[in-house]
Design a binder for these strands. Sequence first.
DNA 1: CCGGAGAATGTACGCACGTACACATCCCCG
DNA 2: CGGGGATGTGTACGTGCGTACATTCTCCGG
Lengths: 178, 178
Amino acid sequence: MTRRHDPHRRQRIIEAAVEVISESGLAALTHRTAAARADVPLGSTTYHFLSLDELLDAAVHTVAERNVARLREWALSLPAQADLSTELAGFIVLLAGEHRQTSVLAYELYGGALRRPALRAASTSWDEMLTEVFESTVDAATARALTAMFNGLLYQALVSPGKPEQADLEQVLRRLLD
Amino acid sequence: MTRRHDPHRRQRIIEAAVEVISESGLAALTHRTAAARADVPLGSTTYHFLSLDELLDAAVHTVAERNVARLREWALSLPAQADLSTELAGFIVLLAGEHRQTSVLAYELYGGALRRPALRAASTSWDEMLTEVFESTVDAATARALTAMFNGLLYQALVSPGKPEQADLEQVLRRLLD
DNA sequence: CCGGAGAATGTACGCACGTACACATCCCCG
DNA sequence: CGGGGATGTGTACGTGCGTACATTCTCCGG
């Protein structure tokens, strides 16, 4: 039962922390919730992470990396002659639906980054990747506009009850892209 | 010294709570911080508010009302033939500069609203007022696009160090509005 | 003018938290 | 193969929190 030797203990704790903040939010992460989730004793989390902030940083960094990776994959999977408005509207629907939990956490991080510099890298890397992706298709100013608009639309989709309508989103995006 | 009778005690506590969350964030609001800020004993906050959530709700409601009022005032002060891109860029600079504290709180509320339904009304009312203002100038879909973009741009301005450049913002906004 | 209802106060309780630390265990290398 | 450093564990301490509540005070209506 007791896993006395566990070479991946540290990584497992980070993974547990990611699960906790994904499901229950940043405020829910404590040494105890992470330890319970990872099925390790309390002392283990304080041994591997000198402070709770250090654990939070590791978890947030992991989440940010995965978000950016997902975005990159999506961009690479786009058809060559794709209509950006259609594709982006579909991506928003996907992120607000199937990947809702991750997206909610992303915008919770957004809000938190305004007061906690440690979280800033996560939101910045997301914005930079968005702009980078868009700049391969449109000019720099439009890419910046699109990044801002994408974030605004995705947030609205997340905060509103019910599924967003892809057709509506597409129409709105066309105001900028057509 | 002891103010045994105070007809506006409840309102003063709400005001203190607004100050606390404006300066130090949502997480900083406790019965004790609010009481200290209002210069009343701890028992006073628990007497006037059955729970901390009730106090938080009152404070958030107050903040949301003021934000919406400021937005309405700004809209009414616009010159008749104003260029919307220029004016909006200036408004973003103003909100990210002089009114930074309030704006930071607004987007902290945005993030929090995703997990705490009690905060949702605050972010929703802001979005609705924005869209309402824009619809007096542009069509509905553009207004929605502009609301999303405005929020995205203002957030970026808040999270980035240094003052945003009004000319840059204006150029980005023109991608949608021209 | 006085009594009671509402307002105000101070204290206390129980809980969850971050962190520290003494002790147990394990692996690896000399 | 044995010892030492890294790893793992359980417990305890101090703090700040939300909340409850008995007590004191203040005002005002009859």
